[in-house]
Amino acid sequence: MAAEEVTLSGHIQHHLTNAKMCSTDTGLAFNKACTDSGFWTWHIDTLAWSIGLGLIFLWIFRSAAKKSTLGVPGKFQCFIEIIVEFVGDNVRDTFHGKSKLIAPLALTIFVWVFLMNLMDLIPVDFIPALAGFVGETAFGMDSHDVYMKIVPTTDINMTSALALGVFILMVGFSIKIKGIGGFIKELTLHPFSSNNMFVQIILIPFNLLLELIALVSKPFSLALRLFGNLYAGELIFILIGAIGFMQLPLHFVWAVFHILVITLQAFLFMMLTIVYLSMASSDNH
């Protein structure tokens, strides 16, 4: 095991592995004991960091909401309101239906994803090393056996969960606005349609195939775009972190560039969510 860790690829591998938890016959098991546990494995670092950051988001915004005044707002309230108004403007511009869900959904996605992406700017070795130290001293574990991946959006489970949530909402909105019949019609009678009944029936499978691909590709693109960007960014941070002192200027440059990436990806995820839900709830195809 130690031999594996001294290599660069081992180091990188260690950084890119989530802390796992699963239940086995003998009770809860962690990390390497969970390699064969299949679906029922929990990435506890992803869960902890994402939920923690989500709670921070809610706490910050809730405290701003509680203290919000109609008079002259303080700086903190102004800052929060700028974000809220930014999200609200985007929702109003893009989503033309009436829904009480879209704006809070967009706000949650934007801020939550942004905060999770922001973890990428914490130097890659700090928290894993700290976790390894704590694991070694407090729990007597081998520090190489302590995994800590602090950017939840570099975990495909995280981004997939967000995308799946959006996908469920898309289907839900479609059915709510157009009815089940309307939704099925949308999937089967477009883009090829004919006035001839017989031809139409022949065209249905093709339409269904195309529309299903179009429908399913949306959550996939959402999940994989965010995951891919952040995973790649994280990987490059790790590579930069592995090259010794020369990393400092490189790390700085990449981090500055990454500020753009993390904001942009959070914004993109939010905008695409709004756009997809807007498409799902508009009647005309």
């Binding site: 679906f39 929990w42 990435h43 939840p152 969960a161 799946l164």
Partner: peptide
């Protein structure tokens, strides 16, 4: 993909 997905959802 594993159960983390469900937790996050």
């Amino acid at each position: 993909l594993n159960a983390t997905l469900i937790g996050e959802l």
